[in-house]
Design a protein around this nucleic acid. Structure first.
Lengths: 124, 124
DNA sequence: CTTCGTTATGTCTGATCGGAGATAACGGGT
DNA sequence: ACCCGTTATCTCCGATCAGACATAACGAAG
């Protein structure tokens, strides 16, 4: 697979803070994407190197921060349980990814200048 | 004074991560701006509601993350010591503020849609 | 040589965060 | 009735963070 699950560790990171103080950032966005691709909270968390407890806690937050829940989960049954994004969840993920790419293009000039000031000397 | 010292607590926040893992975000940017406006690390920290220790720690990081230090400080003397931004510091602050405003304009559409999904129900 | 406000640097401590690990519930298949 | 992998919740614990507080150094001015 060529796609990347995690956001790059260097460059511009966005955090969108809602009016009530909760926020959406790369961590929760990556988790949402992982749930889309794996169909499971635990598998998505494993892929991102986080414990199930943390992944589940993030899902709990995600499900209460917007007007509607973003993740629908089920236990037992044929597939032994799993999770998927709701319509709202898919929309939120799409919007955040769009934010990322638009913002990255908008700050390209400043990014290049800051990087120039960074490796002016060396700092391997 | 009409300018705001702190970044708004809601909306888009940027964190620019350098190749070595250190980063520049709203907190350090606000501190840099506070130093410009007050001429002192401790006064800038007080204005932002942080302890001197924390402010000083951030300055220490700021002074080692780029090729050149961003803050020049002095002890004792006529003014009883103080701090100001170096040329590099002024440039870094300017670039980060430019990043902020450019990115904010670039994500206006998605921001509006996310806010719509937020107060779909109520959540005053 | 004392004064002054700032920088510079320690220690202690409480709060918070997240990982590790255990346990139970679920519910369609078999 | 049992199986299975996932969701859903605990408790425990070490690491980390930041505030609070104390102390010293600085250096021109008086």
């Amino acid at each position: 697979m060529t796609g990347r699950a995690k956001s790059p560790k260097q460059g511009l990171k966005l955090r969108f803070v809602l009016p009530d103080g909760s926020w959406l950032g790369p961590g929760k966005a990556d988790l949402l994407q992982g749930i889309v691709e794996t169909g499971s909270i635990s598998a998505a968390g494993r892929r991102l190197g986080m414990s199930y407890k943390r992944a589940w806690g993030l899902v709990e937050v995600l499900n209460t921060m917007f007007a509607a829940p973003l993740v629908a989960s089920s236990r037992g049954g044929a597939g032994h349980g799993g999770a998927e994004l709701t319509e709202t969840g898919q929309e939120v993920l799409r919007l955040f990814r769009a934010m990322q790419s638009h913002a990255e293009r908008a700050v390209e000039a400043e990014e290049a200048e800051l990087l120039r000031l960074f490796d002016m000397a060396d700092k391997k």
